[in-house]
Write a protein that binds this DNA or RNA. Sequence first.
DNA 1: CACTCAAATAACAACGTTGTTATTATTGTA
DNA 2: TACAATAATAACAACGTTGTTATTTGAGTG
Lengths: 332, 332
Amino acid sequence: MGVTIKDIAKAAEVSYSTVSKALRDSPLVKEPTKQKIIKIAHQLGYQPNVAARSLVSKKSQTIGVVWPTIERVTHSALVTGLNKQLEELSYTTLISINEMEDAINTFNRYQVDAIVAFNEKNSREPAKSTVPIVTYGIAHEDSPFPTVDVNRKQAIQTAVDHLARTGHRSISYIGDMVQEDHLQEEKVEGFRQAIKDYDLELNSTSIIKVNDLASYDGYEAMKELLKKTDHPSAVISGSHDLSKGILRAIQEAGRSIPEDISIISYDNIPATEDLELPLSTVGVPLSTITEKLSEILIALINEETVEQSIYLKPELNITQSCKAWNGGETNE
Amino acid sequence: MGVTIKDIAKAAEVSYSTVSKALRDSPLVKEPTKQKIIKIAHQLGYQPNVAARSLVSKKSQTIGVVWPTIERVTHSALVTGLNKQLEELSYTTLISINEMEDAINTFNRYQVDAIVAFNEKNSREPAKSTVPIVTYGIAHEDSPFPTVDVNRKQAIQTAVDHLARTGHRSISYIGDMVQEDHLQEEKVEGFRQAIKDYDLELNSTSIIKVNDLASYDGYEAMKELLKKTDHPSAVISGSHDLSKGILRAIQEAGRSIPEDISIISYDNIPATEDLELPLSTVGVPLSTITEKLSEILIALINEETVEQSIYLKPELNITQSCKAWNGGETNE
DNA sequence: CACTCAAATAACAACGTTGTTATTATTGTA
DNA sequence: TACAATAATAACAACGTTGTTATTTGAGTG
């Protein structure tokens, strides 16, 4: 059924090794011959057989992505971005949603050139792999693979830093921390520390926990917060979805952004144009993450050494949703 | 680097062809030898090389899934389910998030045994494929591949049917239909027709359009609806997410389900246990879809003929969120 | 103890491709 | 016109595996 290089050879009346060279654009074959072969290959709808090719070349030009929990949407934008990036580097991306270990085995059998794993739950014993692996996520020291992670703590600190420098004294953080999720803890930790560093007030409404990461939770939390007479002049939100709800609550309450309240949202998503108001964000841009990941992948494939742990630095992106604070409270 | 059967052969002091047979549990090799070989293979961490294997066997025991828009979460549960199902049939699943045509080419090169494509946008020219394909989604007649689809129209009709039979006269449908989305239209169409068939009233609040499919949209829509004095006795929701918002709105308004209002949600998701109240649903269970898809895949691989278009029949699942209606309005 | 017959294992071809080596065709030069 | 030197193409081995065919080993029999 499949048309092979030999079929082309027959049709073009040359040897199959010439066809191979012609299709790989080798200078060893004369231009007219090359053209003829390419044309015939195209006519016959030839698709090279990866099995055969990677068998001999020991390379598959393919990267495996281990992504066990597709249902949590967190990483989908990242996977999409990575896919695009790798495509430009002429790599094909394959995704497996099996458990880390199974997925790695599958990819090993498939002779992918390297693997990216989304290390959600701290994986137990590292799977044996003949293929280099880079993980994205919680970078614990004893990880058997190089890890790329986002510095969440620093992100929130950066946000507080900006707000404090622009006069805000009363800042709240709204985030989810119900699930014993290390990633979320890190953000809260960053908040606490920054508040302390700037000697800002820390009271019962400074850190507001929400139950889930949906937009509605942000909405409710902000609604509650606005009921208090002494609500903060700035709010930092732990996720994009929460921020959506927060914006709604503020608008519904007839307050205005940034006059009454400034907002900064933790975020990795590229744009954020689905909102009426362009949101100030802090976080590592998706493109930075995908660039770093592909860079490491390529390095690993070329058997270069790479750093064991890489913490990407968040970037602050301030828009109309933030404003310096000089009213309301007594300034010194 | 990779361990091959020849390495095992050397270690076990047998020929490599014997190793091959032993590992495939052939009766042609003596039991003790077999055990010895298997043990050594395990020790060395042997992983068969798919490239070589599929080169000779022309089978890869792999199914490719074409899923260009992972960011829309709609299909993630389905992919997860399908993956599990295929795993049980000892097939490996690979996912590509490239455009249909690219993805199909990739999978062809990889010699997957068959392909499932999520046909979101009506794809233009069908890609050439040497591998059988089944699409999931809009089943238009001239599709070049067999298609599995869910009968959304019938789903909503079934819901109306149930409500009408249990005494409801005033029923609303809340759904998203802003994007010119054929799938959504189908549901509305089903609603209209069923209302007509049962000669129920159809007024300005019978069909409520929402802008998006998020929970918040359902919340807002329901809140509005409840303000009216003559609100419906039953609501059909176009999606799971909308339903979540609808529930909240009803609870917030101090109404009770199902005493004041009955609810049926369109849904394919397996459980729905994240809600306080078990929701009545109508839709094709995910397991039915994945079973049908794998069934067709296997048939295609075995070169059996399959139906061109398959419309899966929705199932109605009534729980506490529904109750017969006999109060309020004047009954005949 | 030779001799058949089956059991166990070994050897080999094939899958489609690439890289290397061998052969043939084509040119340029004396 | 003969002879290198080079360009173009062909032939072949190899990749790791499987299925088929060939060889060896070990019983069982007269």
